[in-house]
Amino acid sequence: MEDFNSLLLQEQVELLKAQSAPTRSARSAHRREAMGYARQIEAHAFPYRSLGDDGSRRFDPRIYDYLIEETTH
């Protein structure tokens, strides 16, 4: 399994690239990459984004999706 901190870093890099991408297709591609890293983070043994007893996550990066979609360049 990949290093947890490396996964977090790569996810953040892809989210930043999505935010600054010049086209909608580039933003979508970077968001897909970020979500791939998010899935690996969720599956990682370290319970950073594990589901709580109430079904919520301690941290859910999808709450920032609207920022990426609304960014225009």
Rank of each mutant, 00 (worst) to 15 (best):
D3A: 14
F4N: 08
F4W: 10
N5M: 06
S6Y: 09
S6K: 11
S6V: 10
L8T: 10
L8R: 12
L9G: 05
L9M: 10
Q10G: 02
Q10V: 08
Q10K: 10
E11D: 00
E14M: 10
L15A: 02
L16F: 14
A21R: 09
A21E: 03
T23E: 08
R24F: 03
R24P: 09
S25E: 05
S25W: 06
A26I: 12
A26G: 13
A29K: 15
H30L: 07
R31I: 07
R31H: 07
R31P: 04
R32T: 13
E33K: 15
E33D: 05
A34K: 06
M35Q: 09
M35F: 15
G36S: 03
Y37I: 00
Y37S: 00
Y37V: 01
A38P: 00
A38W: 08
R39Q: 04
R39A: 02
R39Y: 08
R39S: 00
R39M: 06
Q40I: 02
I41E: 00
I41L: 01
E42G: 04
A43F: 03
A43M: 05
H44C: 03
A45K: 14
A45C: 01
A45V: 03
A45L: 06
A45P: 01
F46L: 15
F46R: 14
F46H: 03
F46P: 02
P47D: 05
Y48P: 09
Y48W: 13
Y48G: 05
R49Y: 07
L51R: 13
D54S: 06
D54T: 08
D54N: 13
R57Y: 06
R57D: 08
R58M: 09
F59N: 15
D60I: 05
D60N: 15
D60T: 03
R62D: 04
I63C: 08
I63A: 15
I63G: 07
Y64M: 14
D65K: 08
D65W: 10
I68E: 01
I68T: 05
E69P: 04
E70A: 12
H73S: 07
H73G: 09
